[in-house]
Each structure stands twice: as C-alpha cells, then as structure tokens.
C-alpha cells in the first residue's frame, strides 16, 4: 500500500464536512477493498475515529473488507429478475466458476460474484453486470460465453 497515495486522499478531504464515505470510496480504489491497514491508517492520520470508519465500512454494501477478484460480476436479484429465474442463473454462474458455498471469489482471483438488489434494467431481466457492462435477456447457456470475454 502506498501511504503517499493515502495521504493525498486524506488531505484532499481536509477541512470538509461529510467526507467519510467519499474518502473511503477513494481509499478502496487503491487495493480494491478496505484492508484493516487502510482503515487504521486513515484513523491515525485524520480526526476520524476507527470505530466510525469501521461502522460505515460495514454498513454500506459498496465497501468490501476482503480482497476481490479482477472482474466483478453483479447478479441482479431485483423483482423482475427474480420472477425470470435469476436464481438458476446465479447457480449456474457459480457452478461455471467453480465457487463452493460461502465463496464469492474464484481461486485464481479473476472473478468476484455479488448479488445486487436491482440494476434498473428490469425490462431486460434477468440481468448481470460484469464490471461496467450490463448483459440482459440472459439464459443459463449464455453465461459461459460472456465469461470467456473476461478470461
């Protein structure tokens, strides 16, 4: 971890109010997640308490406390996707990636699978988002083809 980078982030928010969330969002970009070291460092080099940092980091789903894969796959679990059998899609995706129960990141660190509440593309249900690209009207058989683009 580059402390210089972290120092720059901390100082960019100095003297401003309501900074904790954007500060942590920026800090998370450094390693893709908020490590204990990052959270401690921020607490020690700002006037924000570690308890507040941990409280916010664990409250919002966007903050991750574990290392994540190179590509993030967000599987939409919104209502329209649910009635279009997003569950089966998720199962086959996890199966395709060889994830066992409780795991969300592949052993090679290439993919992390997350479930998200709604991506707002309900008319294309079921939908997944890989990094910033959304794929709609999916079937179980299309999933493997999409993953190939990211290997």
């Amino acid at each position: 971890m580059s402390n210089l980078e972290l120092d720059r982030i901390i100082s960019s928010y100095e003297g401003k109010k309501g900074v904790l969330i954007p500060l942590l969002q920026d800090a998370q970009k450094l390693e893709g997640y908020l490590s204990k070291e990052i959270m401690r460092y921020v607490a020690e080099h700002s006037d924000i308490r570690l308890a507040d940092i941990y409280g916010v980091a664990t409250f919002y789903t966007m903050f991750r406390l574990k290392p994540q894969g190179k590509h993030i796959i967000r599987v939409c679990k919104g209502t329209a996707c649910h009635v279009s059998d997003a569950g089966a899609l998720l199962d086959s995706l996890r199966d395709e990636l060889g994830l066992t129960e409780g795991e969300d990141t592949t052993a090679d660190g290439n993919f992390t699978v997350m479930e998200v509440a709604c991506l707002g593309c309900c008319s294309l249900a079921p939908v997944i988002m890989v990094d910033a690209t959304t794929y709609g009207k999916l079937t179980v058989n299309k999933v493997a083809g999409i993953l190939k683009n990211y290997k």
Partner: peptide, 11 residues
C-alpha cells in the same frame, strides 16, 4: 437513490 427492485423510472 432509486432502490426499489423493479423500479427504473428515475434512472
């Protein structure tokens, strides 16, 4: 902060 699953008009 359109959060309702199944709603996308605000987006």
């Amino acid at each position: 902060d359109e959060g309702d699953p199944g709603a996308f008009m605000d987006r």
